[in-house]
Design a protein around this nucleic acid. Structure first.
Lengths: 394, 394
DNA sequence: GTGGATTTGACGGAACGGGCAACAAATGAC
DNA sequence: GTCATTTGTTGCCCGTTCCGTCAAATCCAC
């Protein structure tokens, strides 16, 4: 039970809470007028003025120009996060590694991505590769830019306590510590490691196609299938931080054998391999095979279109249980599931709605807006949450 | 996005927050020494003393006697919720109606339950029936007892905004307002209506077999199957307040036709009717049929035992997806699923663990400790949360 | 253009609540 | 019985927000 949550040891911590509320609002919504801040926080003009002054003194925000054209009255000055504060985000995917510098407020300042061999590789090689990418990114940043933290997205199970990678089957990793090696090379910056499904959900709900929704299910598939859950506006990571591991849920007793040993897991029905096999192709083609397949679908290849149709039946089948359990506003599909959406959206919406209870038929299904960048952006959001809390305390 | 959450307009609202923290701790953990409150809240002795004084002046708590026998030092006085503050909780089940008076701190002061015909009945008849029960309960309360609110549990979909019963298939109700009629007869008390699965989960996590756990899945079945979710210590009710409606999730394409029109819903595999049919009995026997069946199982009836075995396979199958998605500490089974646990616990734990990912194999499965009282106790918890917030504000 | 209405920002005083330190009270250990 | 230890109480201090007032900046009507 969340019990020892110390209440606001007012007044000092009340000010922290209020500073946090303002900085968080600026991070999430971008430039905001001071009068809007007064309304959204419920604080008085004097309090907001004082708090914004604090944040400006810390170099986190700046006030610039007036903003308002509706009605009389003195225009309110705009407060916006300064672009000189960034975090670095790293996304270790199966096929590629992405690195980005993301400013307070969510702007992606720099972003690079390069391919990776889809084979098991020892962690230290991957870490070195990522560090070279980080250096390429930081080298191009302006001199006055400060790096405040590092966020990492990994397709695996992450310990919520010490952020070790407990298991990443698709990378071939078992119990890998990423925090120490990264921190050793980057100074004592705060480092956060998150599951790609979890941070992907966070990215889509803050910067992507589910903005403004409090109840969101994000499902993504490459080789594996993962999900991220937002309930009541908060990320649900589960008891051991491994919520959303839906890939090995049994769905088809008449299905193929899964890498986990069971028969007919969701992953064996809606993962990349499943789609390639349904279309009569081999699973060795990887991302390129999927790209080829989608090009053929666009060209009208009936075999591929039929494979997509079958695939979509199983996607709807798998989503039904999750939506019934969670009652979300919107289901966001990333990875392969997002890529095929242009071809299957109508069929998927129809099949899903047919299976859902009448009360849930309004549930929207959309493709991820951020595509393959979702995890890296989500990793940035995760670390920004931590950094904001730390900066405020100082 | 939960955005307009006004931060602590300190200092006044900080005091509310602190009062709330203390009263909530007393409600959840019962009598607590003042020094324990100092530790758990992080406040100073003076602040706790002042806050407890407030609560005592409001008639909500009392200080009585000393408590401490470990080591030297002045013993700390115990603070405990006063039993003169109660809420009324009502549970409208398919087979029965329960009414209880529950004190601050969770003690059940009075509790009655009487059977109901398992047929559709117009709402006003049920409400009148419940009101008579409420009067029977309140009539026996001491004169100095104050009733502060009413909580209702209903097996149906409840609007989170106005607490209307949008749909209760097993009661035969569509869009029923319970709040107005109850409030009309009980004065302007706060009234809260909740789904039986949701409040059942709350009851088990606060007063039952999942105390202390932050991530809990509660699954219950009578005729229908419902679930309640606790994630991060908070009840997850979903976008429209109808999370946990897992009964009509498709699980068995080769199954029977469900009342909802689909084939092989979870409800048609693990509901009461499913078990009765598997054992070769008719579905008209209702609760009595289940009681007979369990008696026969205890007596060693092999047909029934085989039916329970099959039933359990499907329970494990259904739970697998939910546990993979939510990664809970513990799964609590109520209703029929709890009643059969003595016969199937080992098989269920084994089958579930065999299907779960290795990282989740520690997930515990237990029978609900509160049995059929879970919804009524949970309804009391829901309304107490509201009442506590109101009392604190005053 | 000019003056009034309106909204916002800044400043000073007031109230409120928790932290802190000193002291009194209640117990166990010797 | 004395001392160490822990707890409750009291008075004072300090930080934070709130409130009222005034100046500044804009829109609008004339």
């Amino acid at each position: 039970m969340s019990d020892s949550v110390a209440p606001g040891r007012a007044p000092r911590s009340a000010r922290q809470t209020n500073r946090h509320a303002i900085l968080r609002a600026l991070h999430l919504h971008g430039a905001t007028s001071r009068s809007e801040l007064v309304q959204s926080t419920g604080l008085t003009r004097s309090a907001v003025g004082s708090l914004v002054g604090d944040l400006a003194a810390l170099g986190l925000v700046e006030e610039a120009g007036s903003t308002r054209r509706d009605g009389p009255g003195r225009p309110s000055s705009a407060v916006r996060p300064r672009g000189t504060q960034v975090v670095i985000a790293v996304d270790l995917m199966v096929d590629s590694i992405g690195v980005a510098a993301v400013a307070l407020g969510g702007a992606v300042v720099r972003s690079i991505r390069w391919p990776r061999r889809r084979t098991a590789q020892p962690p230290h090689e991957v870490i070195d590769d990522a560090l070279r990418g980080i250096e390429r990114v930081t080298a191009t940043l302006d001199d006055d830019v400060e790096v405040r933290g590092l966020g990492v997205a990994v397709p695996g199970l992450i310990s919520p306590d010490d952020h070790r990678v407990l298991l990443a089957p698709n990378l071939g990793w078992v119990d890998v510590d990423l925090v120490a090696p990264f921190r050793a090379r980057l100074g004592d910056l705060p480092v956060v490691v998150g599951n790609d499904g979890d941070v992907g959900a966070l990215a889509e709900v803050r910067r992507g196609s589910a903005i403004g929704h409090d109840h969101v299910l994000y499902v993504t598939s490459e080789v594996g299938v993962g999900a991220g859950i937002i309930a009541g506006g908060e990320l649900v990571t589960g008891s051991a931080g491994i919520a959303g591991e839906v890939g090995h849920t049994p769905v088809n007793p008449a299905g193929r054998r899964c890498s986990c040993g069971a028969i007919g897991c969701l992953e064996t029905e809606i993962g990349e391999h499943a789609l390639l096999l349904r279309a009569g192709r081999t699973i060795d083609e990887g991302r390129q095979g999927i790209a080829d397949l989608l090009r053929d679908a666009a060209a009208g290849d009936t075999t591929v279109i039929e494979a997509l149709r079958e695939h979509t039946v199983w996607v709807a089948f798998g989503l039904t249980g999750m939506v019934h359990l969670l009652n979300v506003d919107v289901v966001v599909l990333g990875g392969l599931l997002g890529e095929v959406m242009p071809f299957v959206h109508d069929q998927l919406a129809e099949e899903l709605n047919a299976r859902l209870l009448p009360s849930m038929r309004g549930t929207a299904v959309v493709a991820a807006a951020l595509g393959e960048d979702a995890p890296v952006i989500g990793a940035a959001e995760r670390i920004w949450d931590v950094v904001i809390a730390e900066l405020i305390a100082g």
